[in-house]
Design a binder for these strands. Structure first.
Length: 146
DNA sequence: GCCAACGTTGGC
DNA sequence: GCCAACGTTGGC
């Protein structure tokens, strides 16, 4: 799961109550569907810093709550407000994510060097999704790097 | 700041 | 339903 550290960094997550955040702001249907349909409490999460000087995996986290309506879509003052969404028929959802532990920064440039990760979805050319599945083999390999 | 890639919008 | 225009993502 990608987060811009200028918005929410791994250290920000560590300082939050219960070290947990609602993963608000996803406004892409594919990424939303991953949260809605594939993610359940206890699932492992790679917390990734994107759009920053040192992009890469910054920590391990886990899903701590099933997907539910994203609070920010209903708030007209919020940058993620969606006028077409209603509480009766919400368009956007998010899961909650809880920190497991901060890791060393595993840079994107390093991830690209491992043949074991050659097919990792988030590393594929042109991928822009902020949330992508990680294969079990990729997950296990990454555990050995951090 | 550039730009490739790709998603969304809206006229027709 | 097509597709041009536009917006966003995110590495570099």
């Amino acid at each position: 799961m990608k987060s811009e550290p200028s918005d929410v960094s791994i250290d920000d997550l560590a300082s939050l109550p219960d070290q947990t955040i609602d993963w608000y702001g996803v406004r892409n249907y594919q990424a939303r569907n991953f949260m809605r349909d594939q993610m359940k409490p206890g699932d492992g999460v790679l917390f990734y810093h994107s759009n920053c000087a040192a992009p890469g995996i910054a920590g391990l986290a886990e899903v701590s709550k099933l997907a539910y309506p994203d609070r920010t879509q209903f708030d007209p003052e919020h940058r993620y407000f969606d006028a077409k969404s209603t509480p009766e028929n919400p368009r956007w959802v998010n899961v909650d994510v809880k920190l497991v532990r901060k890791t060393r920064l595993l840079p994107l440039t390093e991830l690209y060097t491992y043949p074991q990760l050659a097919n990792m979805r988030t590393l594929q050319r042109g991928n822009r999704l902020s949330i992508t599945p990680v294969d079990p083999g990729e997950w296990e390999f990454i555990q050995t790097l951090i």
